[in-house]
Amino acid sequence: GTVKVQGITIKVPNPDKAYKIAKKLAKKYNLTVTRKGNTIKVE
């Protein structure tokens, strides 16, 4: 899958794990995490 952070896309082998990490970071930096299948977008 991929993770998008402010325009940066990161390929990740485990979208579930990445999503959990993204959620933690999002809370810390007051961002929104959206997930569509293997693509995770943080904005």
Results as ranks from 00 to 15, higher is better:
residue 23 K to W: 06
residue 4 K to Y: 14
residue 18 A to Y: 10
residue 28 K to T: 03
residue 27 K to Y: 11
residue 17 K to Y: 13
residue 16 D to K: 10
residue 4 K to L: 14
residue 31 L to M: 08
residue 4 K to G: 05
residue 25 L to C: 14
residue 7 G to W: 12
residue 30 N to V: 06
residue 28 K to C: 15
residue 41 K to P: 00
residue 10 I to N: 02
residue 24 K to E: 08
residue 29 Y to E: 00
residue 23 K to P: 00
residue 22 A to N: 00
residue 10 I to K: 03
residue 31 L to A: 04
residue 20 K to I: 12
residue 14 N to F: 12
residue 34 T to E: 04
residue 39 T to W: 11
residue 25 L to N: 00
residue 11 K to W: 15
residue 41 K to F: 15
residue 4 K to M: 14
residue 9 T to L: 11
residue 42 V to H: 03
residue 1 G to E: 06
residue 6 Q to C: 15
residue 26 A to R: 09
residue 29 Y to Q: 00
residue 35 R to Q: 03
residue 38 N to T: 06
residue 4 K to T: 13
residue 18 A to S: 02
residue 13 P to G: 11
residue 19 Y to F: 09
residue 22 A to C: 13
residue 33 V to M: 04
residue 23 K to Q: 11
residue 36 K to G: 02
residue 28 K to I: 14
residue 5 V to N: 05
residue 1 G to K: 06
residue 40 I to F: 10
residue 1 G to A: 07
residue 16 D to F: 12
residue 23 K to H: 05
residue 11 K to Y: 14
residue 42 V to C: 09
residue 41 K to D: 06
residue 30 N to D: 04
residue 36 K to I: 14
residue 25 L to G: 00
residue 38 N to Q: 06
residue 26 A to S: 07
residue 8 I to Y: 07
residue 16 D to N: 10
residue 34 T to Q: 03
residue 2 T to E: 11
residue 26 A to I: 08
residue 17 K to T: 09
residue 35 R to V: 06
residue 37 G to Q: 03
residue 15 P to S: 10
residue 43 E to L: 10
residue 21 I to S: 02
residue 15 P to R: 08
residue 23 K to V: 12
residue 7 G to F: 11
residue 17 K to A: 11
residue 37 G to T: 01
residue 6 Q to I: 12
residue 33 V to T: 01
residue 29 Y to P: 00
residue 32 T to A: 06
residue 31 L to P: 00
residue 4 K to A: 09
residue 17 K to N: 07
residue 15 P to K: 06
residue 11 K to V: 12
residue 21 I to C: 15
residue 33 V to A: 03
residue 12 V to T: 05
residue 29 Y to G: 01
residue 25 L to F: 08
residue 16 D to S: 08
residue 17 K to C: 15
residue 11 K to D: 06
residue 24 K to H: 10
residue 12 V to D: 02
residue 27 K to N: 07
residue 21 I to Q: 03
residue 24 K to G: 07
residue 4 K to E: 14
residue 3 V to M: 08
residue 22 A to V: 13
residue 26 A to M: 07
residue 32 T to I: 13
residue 30 N to C: 15
residue 16 D to Q: 08
residue 8 I to C: 15
residue 8 I to H: 06
residue 10 I to P: 02
residue 23 K to L: 14
residue 5 V to L: 12
residue 13 P to V: 10
residue 20 K to A: 12
residue 16 D to A: 07
residue 2 T to F: 14
residue 15 P to H: 06
residue 40 I to C: 14
residue 17 K to D: 08
residue 15 P to N: 05
residue 27 K to H: 06
residue 2 T to D: 05
residue 10 I to H: 03
residue 33 V to H: 00
residue 25 L to E: 00
residue 30 N to L: 08
residue 22 A to K: 00
residue 22 A to E: 00
residue 39 T to P: 01
residue 14 N to D: 13
residue 8 I to R: 07
residue 4 K to S: 12
residue 28 K to L: 14
residue 20 K to L: 11
residue 29 Y to S: 01
residue 41 K to T: 15
residue 31 L to G: 01
residue 12 V to W: 07
residue 27 K to W: 07
residue 37 G to N: 05
residue 40 I to A: 01
residue 32 T to N: 08
residue 6 Q to L: 15
residue 19 Y to C: 11
residue 39 T to S: 09
residue 13 P to D: 13
residue 32 T to L: 12
residue 19 Y to M: 06
residue 25 L to Q: 00
residue 30 N to E: 03
residue 31 L to Q: 01
residue 16 D to P: 04
residue 16 D to H: 09
residue 38 N to Y: 03
residue 43 E to W: 14
residue 43 E to D: 06
residue 10 I to F: 11
residue 32 T to H: 07
residue 6 Q to Y: 15
residue 2 T to N: 06
residue 18 A to R: 01
residue 29 Y to K: 02
residue 40 I to P: 03
